[in-house]
């Protein structure tokens, strides 16, 4: 029983360290998202306001992934989370940009920006990121304890 307890202690300490580390990193990222939000709200004001909810959905989701990926470091879940994050970004950018057509209404004028080629490129980047995650997960799973 004592042997088991002695083995569990460093593991628990390791987990606590991981959680603290992940929390600190997530908090730093959260601060960056908050500063960007302040800057956008200050300089773009009424133009940015309708997109505030979308902004916070992206920020919260990416903060969650940052925390979860940091916690799951050293396990195969890290790569699964990286793949899931890329999937989320693909769905998010397609939905939030209305398939690459972005519309802003301002003082009686409507500005529409169409960036479908750019959106396609962003989707391609995230697909590459998914491929990268799959390769890394396969490599990790193929490793023996000696590696």
């Amino acid at each position: 029983m004592n042997e088991v307890e002695a083995e569990a202690k460093p593991t628990r300490r390791k987990l606590v360290t991981k959680i603290v580390e992940a929390t600190v990193i997530t908090a730093i990222y959260g601060l960056v998202w908050l500063i960007i939000w302040f800057l956008l709200s200050h300089f773009l004001g009424p133009v940015f306001q309708p997109f505030s909810t979308l902004y916070w959905i992206l920020a919260c989701a990416l903060l969650f992934f940052t925390f979860a990926i940091k916690i799951s470091e050293g396990t195969v879940y890290k790569y699964i989370l990286i793949i899931l994050r890329s999937f989320f970004i693909i769905v998010y950018i397609i939905y939030s940009t209305n398939f690459g057509i972005f519309t802003i209404n301002f003082e009686g004028f409507t500005l529409t920006v169409e960036f479908i080629p750019l959106l396609a490129m962003m989707v391609a980047i995230n697909l590459l990121s998914i491929a990268n995650g799959i390769i890394q997960a396969t490599e990790f799973a193929a490793q023996t304890p000696e590696d």
Binding site: F115, L118, M121, M122, I125, L128, S129, N132, I135, Q136
Partner: peptide
């Protein structure tokens, strides 16, 4: 596999830079 992963990472970074630089 490591080279593939490195190459993919490099491509991803270059593409992200292009995507961010183009609108600017």
């Amino acid at each position: 596999m490591r080279h593939t992963v490195k190459a993919l990472r490099l491509i991803i970074v270059v593409l992200w830079l292009a995507v961010l630089l183009l609108p600017i």
